[in-house]
């Protein structure tokens, strides 16, 4: 069971690399925000499955913080983008 969790955690984390391709290429700032959003979601999933792999429930709080604050950041940057600051 723990081996399965480890495999899932590694698989979900390795998708961040593909999202980073769009982060490097993206012609506008909006593309980069979309790629960053996806990367944060994949990082959250990898974090949750790593917590299940390591059998420490204390790691799960970091996942909640990461999920909520990454979307808060997206809202803040959309706000800045709308006001023409970027």
């Amino acid at each position: 069971m723990t081996a399965l969790y480890a495999v899932v955690a590694i698989a979900e984390t390795s998708l961040i690399a593909l999202a980073m391709v769009r982060l490097a290429l993206g012609p506008t700032v909006s593309d980069r925000i979309v790629a960053l959003n996806t990367a944060a979601a994949q990082a959250t999933l990898g974090l949750l499955f790593f917590a299940a792999f390591a059998d420490r429930s204390i790691y799960l709080d970091v996942g909640i913080w990461l999920a909520s604050f990454s979307y808060l950041g997206t809202l803040i940057w959309a706000r800045l983008l709308e006001r023409g600051l970027l």
Partner: peptide, 16 residues
Amino acid sequence: AGAAMALSAMGTVLTL
């Protein structure tokens, strides 16, 4: 601004 986004991605992966 794109470099700042890359910095944010670095922070996310550093969390992990």
